[in-house]
Design a protein around this nucleic acid. Structure first.
Length: 115
RNA sequence: GACGCAGGACAGGUGAUCGCGGCUGCAAGUGUCGAAAGACCGCAGGUGAGGAAAGUCCGGGCUUCACAGGGCAGGAUGCCGGUUAACGGCCGGUGGAGGAAACUCUAAGGAAAGUGCAACAGAAAUAUACCGCCAGAUCUUUCUGGUAAGGGUGGAAUGGCAGUGUAAGAGACUACCGCCUCGCUGGUAACAGGGAGGGCACAUGUAAACCCCAUCUGAAGCAAGACCGAAUAAAAGCGAUGACGUGGCCCGCCAGCUUUAGGUAGGUCGCUUGAGACCAUUGGCGACAGUGGUUCUAGAUAGAUGAUCACCCAACGACAUAACCCGGCUUAUCGUUCUGCUAAUCUG
RNA sequence: GGAGAAGUACUCAAGUGGCCGAAGAGGUGCCCCUGCUAAGGGUAUAGGUCGGGUUGACCGGCGCGAGGGUUCAAAUCCCUCCUUCUCCG
């Protein structure tokens, strides 16, 4: 991805959970925290309760693809953690895509489209 | 033909756009990091999950640790023979159970080496007479003795059944069956067939109770392990270096420099050419083994296969994502398709 | 990825082949105590589900995570699955 790298360390995740703001909808939960960097860092977390390995990987790919296509709309300098809820098991790509953009709107982290 | 039985193959395909992990090559900079080597960014090509990758139930390779040799304990396996690197797997056979058959299932050694346990019921559970039957005695309704044919209890009660016999009975005796012992024949063997004898003793069941017998077995696991190695803390050394104790020196101490061990963060290796795959052929009923040829086919490290559109098809596909690697087993699974076999029932 | 442990009524749980018809505690219902509650005391209860039944009792079958097996008999012994939890950098 052009402007982003992935969030890897467990301590980074804990920092975002403790200090970040969160919004949720039917399929996803999103935590956001500002970092003092030029790029965004995104972490995707899918619990074992959601399903087996195939389902979890598939959900991860859907979220990453949705983020990739909307990447240029996001502000930079953010640590984002996206958590899939149990209801996301049977969700299609379109549902995930709209859920992600809905949460981005709630966080008000989209760039002004007028510019 | 339906139904049934056994064995095997496939696991959506094609095209377009965007995107991801290794690998190979190119490009060469006005880009970023770096002293440099180089790394990142860029372009192109090629490549990229399964039949179970799953469960982790067995076995092996590999690695580290332990170890003079041997045994005990513990664990595993358990009809016989073969196969294999090895196995609890597989193949072929034997016995037993099921089915009309094709065929399927089978932890299937020893209970006459010893110990334990067998609730309740029942007179009695491994040793015994409750009722009954019979004989004798007798105070005439009790006692003594014999008896496992009958009743009742129980999962299990003196081998079964028919006869002889007897007071009543009893392998007490006889035939058949079962059991045990010893030869014979066939078979590598499990075992099968048939013969002679015993005369039922040990008396039932349980070894997925302890145990006996035979065979095997050191422990842990790639988060194993090997190498490199910041930072911090530690030790040793250095003296025309600096500050302080001090006005000066020895010395001390702090800083500085060098070295050492340690092995954390992190990195590299282990890591994919292997008991490999495919084809042909030879031996074998088969599992499998031999020979020859061809071929190289993921290697990530928060962890790569997805999204959209169009077409095909009855079907948006079912179950499911390698993590050191192999051989099995078990479990999950929408369907499509091929080969062989059976003949109870139904249809033609 | 690897190594282990556990599963019993609503909850916590005892039960290591047969008196299990599954102990005990909490919980629940009723009564006493109190002006009313809490606490305390007493007492009762289905202890799940299916079938039968005189619809109060009561009787029978299946039930200890699920399914098989061994045994006369299984919560207990053996095998295969499922779920939950713990440890290893």
């Amino acid at each position: 991805m052009k402007f982003s790298e992935s969030l890897k360390k467990n301590s980074d995740f804990q920092k975002v959970y403790r200090n970040g703001r969160s919004f949720a909808n039917r399929f996803l939960v999103m935590y956001v925290l500002e970092n003092e960097k030029n790029c965004n860092r995104i972490g995707i977390s899918v619990s074992k309760k959601v399903g087996n390995s195939v389902i979890r990987h598939h959900i991860t790919r859907l979220i990453r693809e949705s983020y990739r296509l909307q990447e240029e709309m996001f502000n930079s300098g953010l640590d984002i953690v996206v958590i899939a809820r149990t209801t996301a098991r049977n969700a299609s790509y379109q549902e995930i895509y709209s859920a992600l953009s809905h949460l981005g709107g709630l966080h008000k982290i989209f760039k002004r489209t007028e510019n």
